[in-house]
């Protein structure tokens, strides 16, 4: 093997010691350190506060949580109405006794399931959860049924859906009178 240069650090030269005149006075150094840290901490804190503030927008361009979806007769018995899925995130379903509103958010991890009409089930494309027309989970990993939203009649006979109030089956809330509109 050819000879290799020896790294300088290995030569073990003693380091020159700093003369006292060159070194910063200890007391002054510490007070500069304090000023520096305080400045750094307050700058970081301000930035953090700004970031947190950023999470709460002044204006929210969201469709209202409570809205009218038409008259009960607009909905056919046995049909899953998908007209409101894209904008409002709900399915409206009418059975022989009445109407209920299901959320389109999968209770597993929040994907949007698809209504498969021929199979009569909602099927999630993310991990394969399946829900019956009633919203009950029966296949795949979803741990609980789809949520239902509040549904009531307005004075003029139109249906009002209120997404700010939801009813969860596993908590026994589906029997609440406003979870189901009798028609």
């Amino acid at each position: 093997m050819s000879e290799k240069p020896i790294p300088r650090a290995a030569l073990n030269t003693p380091q020159d010691e700093l003369s006292p005149a060159e070194s910063v006075k200890r007391k002054g150094f510490i007070s500069w350190l304090v000023v520096g840290w305080v400045a750094f901490a307050s700058a970081t804190g301000t930035f953090l506060a700004m970031i947190v503030r950023f999470l709460f927008p002044n204006v929210l361009f969201e469709p209202p949580q409570s809205f009218k979806i038409g008259f009960p007769d607009d909905f056919q018995i046995g049909v899953v109405d998908e007209r409101f899925k894209a904008l409002r995130g709900i399915w409206v379903i009418r059975d022989s006794e009445g109407i209920y509103v299901l959320s389109t958010v999968c209770t597993h991890l929040g994907c949007t399931p698809n209504w498969l009409r021929t199979e009569g089930k909602f099927k999630c494309p993310c991990h394969g959860s399946g829900f019956r027309k009633s919203g009950i989970n029966f296949e795949g990993p979803a741990p609980r049924p789809l949520e239902r939203y509040r549904i009531v009649l307005a004075e003029n006979g139109q249906i009002i859906v209120d997404k700010s109030i939801k009813f969860q089956q596993e908590k026994g809330q589906w029997s609440h009178p406003e979870a189901f509109l009798k028609v």
Binding site: P125, C126, H127
Partner: peptide, 21 residues
């Protein structure tokens, strides 16, 4: 309101996604 079907995670997370099933 529309998840692609099938909705697949990035390739390196597909093992995690399988676990989620």
């Amino acid at each position: 309101s529309l998840s692609p079907n099938p909705a697949k995670a990035p390739w390196y997370f597909l093992g995690l996604q399988e676990m989620l099933v």
